[in-house]
Design a protein around this nucleic acid. Structure first.
Lengths: 217, 217, 217, 217
DNA sequence: GATGAATGAGCCTTCATTCAT
DNA sequence: CATGAATGAAGGCTCATTCAT
């Protein structure tokens, strides 16, 4: 199991420190924009000197990217595996919503940041910065788009542009995140899950329920 | 109507200049973060000296706040008037969605900024900065919450926490905005409107149709 | 004479400040390498805030370049005019040596720096930095090379590579500068001028002067 | 001869490592200023850890000083031995010029640095740094001064301040070095040697030849 | 002795804010 | 009122030096 423990030991320490710094950065970033976060603050939060940060990250942008990538990769992995399990598209969609809502708690602090950064999209400067991000973004969108396409073809979902549906679904997830943050709800996901599922299943507006009722009007 | 025309004249000029500066700031802010926008740029865009900005705004934060408030007030006003027109809650909801989606085009540039700033929410620093914002935010939420409460009580909407529904609805609107921005759609609102209405009316997932219909397949 | 005094007034102030800063930088740079000179020091010496430096120069490199250019242009101008006056190549050479030695006093502090920087030549980084400098350098070398070529063709100078002769002549001038600096001589130029002229005229080593003297040995 | 071989062995190792590091520093310094050279680079080039450098040198300045001293000592030794060989002052001068020009090739990379550092001379800070250097410098100057004094007294050299003559001679040598560097000449020394010797022997400017010769034209 | 991760003072540069004109 | 030159507090980053292993 232990292969070349010597080299590994250093790597472990490095990986540990890297994660430590990222964890510190995460708390600093909470509720702030990346631009407003300073390397001094991160260093202080991590309990290391400022110069130390540059032993693990080439620049501030590098650090931010690592932070966002960390979150993104996790979401992406879990989303992908939730879609690989068997089931109808509707089943998968429900499972996916659960998974994504689950991240609202785990990544409570970073979620808004992540959304925000991704939104900014291809900001003119820092070209290389966004490349991997847009790739990751695209992988995520592709994943959902695939699901919607599958569901639409199976006649299970309403016919609509799958990409638009992807964005709308994410909008619902994010909205729950904001709800949680703004309203100070401890676990908004728990409350939102059934509502979102109902919304997806039958809409928000109650249809005239039965011919009988209709006749009654 | 004209009370103390002298003072009024000055006020008019001030208001005019204020709006001019805000308009300039709007173009500068386009696709950038507020932090990345400098007072120099705003002054240049407005065609005034940098010092002049401080005659109309106490600080950069003040200016940004005014910018966002401007957008917010407009949305708020239109949203309110769309809800005052007669109709069932469902009618009002549909009208409201149309109005809000309309802003995606008009305020295309500021929309992401607005969303982002509002999200940041209770940023620890700049206490006064957020006060009026949260107030405006709350007025908006109240407006929608009122509609949802009304609709739920009338049995037209599914029973759920009206505040949560408010956030979810906004999530859909914002998602359309992101869709527009990221996908480069010229008018995403037009495409999204029927999809969102369908979603609100009958959900995304097609229910098993009545036995009759099922047999027909 | 005064054309648009308004615009001119500002320009005058700007030019004045620019020269003030350069003068301050000059004293800071004295006996140091440009790299070792900090913007803080320059600002302090100029009696302005650090940020002010950046109103007149885009960067530290820019400032250094301006400093060196200032010296270089002066030397170049005077050297050129001393060569345009009538006379045989030998006359011109003598005049030129006088002019160049004159700079040892006027530009005592910067002279070694100038030499040093020019020497470093096309350092790998800061490509644009050296471009104009090498151009100026080349103009200077061309000037002297022209003189030497003319003198050689007239049979007044020993036949040798004019460029090499140019470098050797400059070596003598610079050597005098070092002599002045290291030995602390107040005016080394005055002392060195006749020696250099003798060297150029008849060499350092006395030839066996006459058959008579030779016979005397 | 071998006294306390144990201590000697350690000393040998130390001396070896010291020289190894200096050799590495030499390649790093090539064409750069000492300020631009980092300890990391030196350590990497020497194949040792950065901390190791501090086992052999107290500081970066120390290391640079050792580097320059190394060059200086070599030149000094060779210059001294070339002057000890028998011959007239003129013979010795010619031999010395050959020796010094020889260093232009061997120490091509360090030559400009050496000149530059020496020039900087009495830099105000780093008091101890320059002490030994000025000593070495002085030994070199004394050597040449002795030669010139001897030659002047023998009536072989023109009467002039021997120290000034020393600086002028060095100026010619250095000029050749710059010529080599700037013009990219492979072996400028070879080209410059005869020119410099001619210059020393009979000057640059051709005297009016004897009436006889003049008539011959 | 050797290592190299950690340090932190110091550098260049930016930009919100002020104030004399 | 308007101006814009001046300010100086940060911020990101580098690198000589130290020290625990």
């Amino acid at each position: 199991m232990k292969i070349s423990p010597r080299a590994t030991k250093k790597e472990i320490v490095t990986a540990f420190r890297t994660r430590e710094i990222l964890a510190a950065a995460r708390t600093v970033l909470a509720g702030r924009s990346p631009e407003a976060m300073t390397m001094d603050e991160i260093a202080a939060a991590a309990g290391v000197a400022k110069g130390t940060l540059y032993l693990y990250f080439q620049s501030k942008d590098d650090l931010i990217e690592a932070l966002l990538t960390q979150v993104g990769e996790n979401i992406l992995r879990d989303a992908a595996s939730s879609l690989q399990a068997p089931g109808t598209p509707a089943d998968k969609l429900i499972r996916l919503v659960s998974v994504l809502l689950g991240y609202l708690n785990r990544e409570r602090l970073l979620f808004p940041i992540y959304a925000r950064e991704v939104i900014r999209g291809a900001g003119q400067s820092r070209a290389g910065f966004w490349q991997r991000h847009l790739e990751m973004e695209e992988r995520f969108v592709s994943l959902l788009t695939g699901l919607f396409t599958e569901g639409i073809e199976a006649g299970q979902f309403i016919p609509a542009n799958p990409r638009l549906l992807t964005f709308l679904l994410r909008g619902l997830i994010r909205a729950t995140g904001y709800y949680q943050k703004v309203e100070g709800q401890a676990d908004a996901a728990q409350e939102a899950l059934p509502v979102i599922l109902t919304l997806l299943s039958s809409g928000l507006i109650r249809q005239k329920q039965s011919p009988t009722e209709e006749a009654a009007l």
